[in-house]
């Protein structure tokens, strides 16, 4: 790699790093504001709150029925992960192993829900779901969240399956494995790291998926992020600290899974999908 040593290049490097520093400091300070506020007794017009308390967590827990919301969130996320895994991995296997007419069209069909923002296709989707009576129910939320996650799993898994040598499968066939045995004893162990990575990313994305859940959720099928939106939207009804406590609960649920996911995937994969696959 070339290193420039002129004064201009050094100044430029300093400028670029200050920019990154400025961004990161503001980002972390924003998160710190939420956390500080959630533990504050009273925080008006000073650098730090006057006192510290944890009572906002109890009040947020009761006021926003966080226990019910968390249960719904994990049920939705769990089902979305399982179903998108089942639909996505099988389809990815077919697309990785076979070349057929219309394959490009099929890949485009799976690419579009990831490129088009959820709010654009969410409104027609919500309209259809309201007409079928699915919207407002628990299953409506699951179905809506599956629309971007199934293609996501497919596109993450295709390169991962492609790098597994088909000869391994052929060898298993020669030794008399049927399709089920082939899947359980050969494919699943080989694909597990990729499946795990893809599903963890689906999990993190689904917890944070606001638009689709917001458009189809009813009062009893809200996930945490939608409940948080309504709480902020109706700010003034509840104490600010109470909403912040809820935001901290939301951050904690997301970040726990993010930390687990980052043990298996490169952070850039969360954005650029299947650029680099871990070599296993």
């Amino acid at each position: 790699m070339i290193r420039d040593t002129t004064l201009g290049a050094k100044l430029w490097a300093v400028a670029v790093w200050s920019l990154v520093g400025f961004f990161v400091i503001n980002l972390l300070a924003m998160i710190a504001t939420v956390v500080t506020s959630s533990f504050a007794t009273r925080w008006l017009g000073t650098w730090l709150p006057l006192g510290w308390t944890t009572r906002w967590y109890t009040s947020a827990w009761n006021e926003f029925q966080l226990w019910d919301v968390l249960i719904v969130t994990f049920q939705v996320v769990g089902l979305v992960v399982l179903i998108s895994g089942a639909l996505g991995v099988t389809a990815a296997y077919a697309l990785a192993r076979r070349d057929f007419a219309g394959k490009r069209l099929l890949v485009l069909l799976f690419l579009l829900p990831l490129l088009i923002p959820p709010i654009t296709f969410g409104i027609p989707l919500a309209t259809v779901l309201y007409q079928t009576g699915l919207a407002g129910t628990f299953w409506g939320v699951v179905v809506a969240n599956l629309v971007p996650t199934v293609p996501f799993v497919i596109l993450v898994m295709i390169p991962f399956i492609e790098q597994i040598d088909p000869k391994v499968e052929a060898a298993a066939r020669v030794f008399g494995a049927n399709t089920f045995k082939l899947f359980i004893h050969v494919l699943l162990p080989l694909l597990l790291p990729g499946i795990l990575a893809a599903l963890l990313l689906v999990l993190v994305r689904t917890i944070a998926m606001f638009e689709l859940t917001f458009l189809v959720a009813g009062p009893t099928s809200q996930t945490l992020v939608v409940a948080l939106y309504y709480a902020v939207f109706a700010a003034g009804v509840r104490a600010v600290q109470s909403i912040d406590a809820m935001a901290v609960v939301y951050m904690a649920t997301t970040l726990v899974w993010l930390v687990i996911a980052l043990r298996f995937v490169n952070p850039t994969q969360i954005v650029t999908r299947a650029k680099q696959q871990p070599a296993h």
């Binding site: 990154v20 990161v24 980002l27 504001t33 939420v34 948080l228 939106y229 939301y250 997301t254 980052l262």
Partner: peptide, 26 residues
């Protein structure tokens, strides 16, 4: 690069609702 990319992935994973709520105070 991993530490920096991890920090930068935070706002993407937290989502726009949380960023909006944080910025309201900040």
């Amino acid at each position: 690069q991993r530490l920096l990319t991890t920090i930068l992935v935070l706002p993407i994973t937290l989502g726009t609702v949380l960023v909006a709520e944080g910025l309201l105070n900040y």
